[in-house]
Amino acid sequence: MIKNPLDFSTRTVVTISIGAALYGIIGLIGIPIGPNVQIRPSILILTVYSVFFGPVVGFFAGFFGHILTDLLAGWGLWWNWELSSGIYGFCAGTVCLFKGFDVKYGLYKVWHIVFFIITTVSGFFAAYLFAGFLDIVLMGEPPRKIIYQVCIISLTNSIVFLCFTVPVIVGFLRTNKKNSNLEIED
């Protein structure tokens, strides 16, 4: 559990930076599976950072990391899509606000995982709907096309998330549980 999610300590600053740097660099790698659609492993990094360190770190790591991807690729800065990464990171991190959930010590219950899956999948939809909505308002894209786009991206991302990311997170939780049978007393 994250005690105070708004606490901006030195550790938070460093965590955000390292998360963003990793997310940004790995964001350049993608396996094309169709026109303008890629499967990116970077989303795994963002999810892990969100689950480890909470929603605020997730938000900034996603936002800054995506800015970094755009800076490195040089195809311009697209604010709405960068913010959408931040929103996704935020949603994926909300599970950290629960007492009794801590990846570091492998503390979790099954409903935490279920909650995590629900928030993350809805996070995909929220993030891409937000970006798509701003594309309609700011760029003047046709709404129907954006709805199709948002659905396709969110669904493919959710499938990749369920197949690859959830096992990784559960794996982290279980390996960390093995080496922590000591309890913290408050």
Binding site: V13, S17, A21, I25, L68
Partner: peptide, 21 residues
Amino acid sequence: YKIAYTFNIIFRYIPEIQNEF
């Protein structure tokens, strides 16, 4: 500045992360 400073760390660690990758 705490938020702005993250960009300093990010740019400093890009070469290291690339190397590690």
